[in-house]
Nucleic acid binder design. Sequence first.
DNA 1: CTGAAAGCGCTTACAG
DNA 2: CTGAAAGCGCTTACAG
Lengths: 363, 363
Amino acid sequence: MARQRVTSHDVAKLAGVSQPTVSRVFAPNSRVSARLHDRVKDAASRLGYRPNTLARSLTTGRSGVIGIVLAGLSNPFYADALEKLSAALQAQGYRTLVFFSANHAAEVDGVVEDLIDHQVDGIVLASVSISNTLTERLKTSDLPFVLFNRGQIDASIPSITAQNTLGGRIAAHALAACGHRRIAHFSGWQQSLNGQERQAGFLQGLADLGLQPHSLTDCAYRPQQAAEAARHVFGPTAAERAPDAVFVGNDNMAFAVLDVLRYELGIDVPGDVSVIGFDDVPAAASPAYALTTVRQPTNRMVAATVSTLCAMIDGTQPLHTHIEIESTLIQRGSARLPKGWTVPLFAPLAPDLPSQERAKIDA
Amino acid sequence: MARQRVTSHDVAKLAGVSQPTVSRVFAPNSRVSARLHDRVKDAASRLGYRPNTLARSLTTGRSGVIGIVLAGLSNPFYADALEKLSAALQAQGYRTLVFFSANHAAEVDGVVEDLIDHQVDGIVLASVSISNTLTERLKTSDLPFVLFNRGQIDASIPSITAQNTLGGRIAAHALAACGHRRIAHFSGWQQSLNGQERQAGFLQGLADLGLQPHSLTDCAYRPQQAAEAARHVFGPTAAERAPDAVFVGNDNMAFAVLDVLRYELGIDVPGDVSVIGFDDVPAAASPAYALTTVRQPTNRMVAATVSTLCAMIDGTQPLHTHIEIESTLIQRGSARLPKGWTVPLFAPLAPDLPSQERAKIDA
DNA sequence: CTGAAAGCGCTTACAG
DNA sequence: CTGAAAGCGCTTACAG
């Protein structure tokens, strides 16, 4: 099977030049006389020649491909992010090798070895479950990588997230402003920093107001678990008095909660219960959900991720190891906020991780 | 920047063997004595050696990567398909290089050149807008490729789709069985075979019953255009009598139609109007939509795609150039079908493209 | 500006 | 089973 038969040697022969000259004609910045240049271009197009990227990568040591590791695409936040990451990377001249790894840490680790074998120039880790041993491995591998939408205790590892803690705090204040006092939280995975921070912010927000949470349920970012939690906490068999509001750890879970509330339990949202999500995925804007939610600005998170990674690849120390993009509340119909209510200005939070640098970006 | 420093030479030196022996230890089927094998493995793990895939690819001529070209992920059908394609390919030992290309044919073409340069072993084209010149180019390039969810007039090009024509026909019969007589179609892109076939099937189904369509609107697979069409056809300013049912070219557009009908126009679905979609994406099952739809069996389409592509890569002629996977109606709440209604058994359709082989798979 | 030479890190006949 | 040799298709100093 001889695909891609024609090489620079063939072109050289036809054009009557040396092989390196052909190579130079196709190199970004090379000095070749106009005469030879044209002769080579001519021969190349007659032969249908295109440089073999693999061979180029082998000599230059740069493959021009970035690996992206994702848990999956069933959460539209990641589908959107992947598409945007890929576009932004492509704009920088990179291709993207995409790996999906379910949430087993072992699997993620294997995937990364694979990525290293393929000589990727850098990695974006966008999977929530990344073992610390893996990030350690990656650190020693000397391969540039950044965590997308995934915090990390280790302050030296570059990561880009939204303001998770602030977002949780905003949600608590908003729900309280609706008049609710029995506010539950169906949280994201409490083994992930994202999940922890959103919950911590939520508790902080309640504390600001002298409130206690109705209950805290770890739903692990799984819609099914969130639906279960909704049945459990709002259903007829609930042990204690049901909450009158719930802050859900992400939109994808919030949709499941809304479905259970409205169509299984016959609860009116926001008449009886208010719901606030996190992410602002496209479906949140659909009138079928009209989900009030804390927005993660994907575009800016992607831009920060790509520029950080590119800087690292080019050998520049990134300015900030951790970048937090502003989270804002998007008001729609699932929480009965008073007209004209706006998020209060909080005193800046003491960083919950003292060693962690934080850069608030507002471009 | 010396990443991946350690090579087979380093390992060879440490293990006291020749470099090719190291190579053999890491090759799938090589004969190496147990003693040397262990010594090499040992040295390799002490050095943290892993074979350089790029170098291997350069010599073997196989990169182990498959290119996937997609228009985008905003349609959850493709998000789901991408994840499954990637998993199935990975199970066959392939990695996936993913390219998104908006719907400009020129862009898709550029992407494919890029893929060829990267020495992919094969390509899955899952973008609706692929120029015929491109498929021609691909054919001459001698690179195995298959069209996923995208038909092609040229019968020699392998493609895997659902039974689009049959699906459209089923939708027409189902809507008629609801008692509707003014049935509109908001179609998929009429420049694509998928869109054409679904519409042709729909018209055929109506013709079976002696019916005429209320109207045909090409919505190009864009939810926005479908929403526009809904406003236009069902809105108060509609020129003629509004339809009482609509078959929408895919689910993603159907959601937009449902939103307009219910929340902008106050039309009861299915009380006033029945809606049927195409795809059966996960959100169709949500009670917020409860969309009755023609199912495209993604799993089986993916399996057929991967096995066809792998066969081609291994030099086997694929048994069928065109594989159509069975389409079935999923009954939910957006069409008021009589209890117990089932799809009639149709006489097989004369193939609308005489030259095209068709294989109905029912595994 | 251009060519001859060496090398990127593997694999694969070819001998032994 | 194992090693010496050649080669995959490029790029990059090195001379000229």
